[in-house]
Amino acid sequence: METLSENMKAALLSVLLLVVGCLIWELSIPAQKAVGELTEYELLTGGGQPKAGVPPPSQVLGKAWEQLSNPFYDAGPNDKGIGIQIGYSIYRVLTGYFLAALVAIPLGFLIGMSSIAYKALNPFIQVLRPISPLAWMPLALFVIQDSEASAIFVIFICSIWPMLINTAFGVAGVREDWVNVARTHELSALKTAFTVILPAAAPTIVTGMRISIGIAWLVIVAAEMLVGGTGIGYYVWNEWNNLDLTSVIFSILMIGVVGMLLDSMFGLLQRAVAYIE
């Protein structure tokens, strides 16, 4: 037998695990009895009706095919394609996330460069950071009076902390030597920040951004379940209300796939800014 590379072997094993897993899942779901085999009692109690149960993977696959072949259809408020729902979620996540980055990165720079700013802001950060982002939701809804903006605010507040802390940490940890190089070359404060401190702290900052986007994607599902209307979180909850478990399972998988894509984008960015000392 020809020798396969390690990656090939791992890929084969992954496919094997998937197939075996789906097979076990498929076989463990009891088939519905045909109407002819039902007793009179079962017929009277409605046993012949399609029963809500965990669907087999074949059904989920069928659903996925159906949904993904027309992801952007819009047939009213409660019947939109998966693409539209995910699009809404991504839009909210990215808006909240970039607003957070806009605040967190400059503020992190300030905290990292000045120990007075660090000491002054640290108590606030320590109190605000452990608050579950959803705990802000009632207050946000009351103050902002708009469910859409409230969801974005929740994303903003949950993704700000890892970015803020990592930026401050990265900036404070820039080696004295590199700052001295900037000083002996008479670089202005702004030029030093952009040409020396930013690239030096970039790996730490991007790590914080990567953690943040992960958290934001976790939180958006819960936030949309609360605010409703649109988005993948709303979709999951809506299908649960419809008792359409096939759609629920399908959308869970979609949440995972999108989360993975978002994370791997930041993985690429991380690799681009990495350096070896």
């Binding site: 001295n180 190089v181 000083r183 002996t184 690239p199 350096y275 070896i276």
Partner: peptide
Amino acid sequence: PSLDRGVVFQNYSLLPW
């Protein structure tokens, strides 16, 4: 510090990126 006085540090102080 000034550009009139250049410094070579013991640990090179090159910017690694």
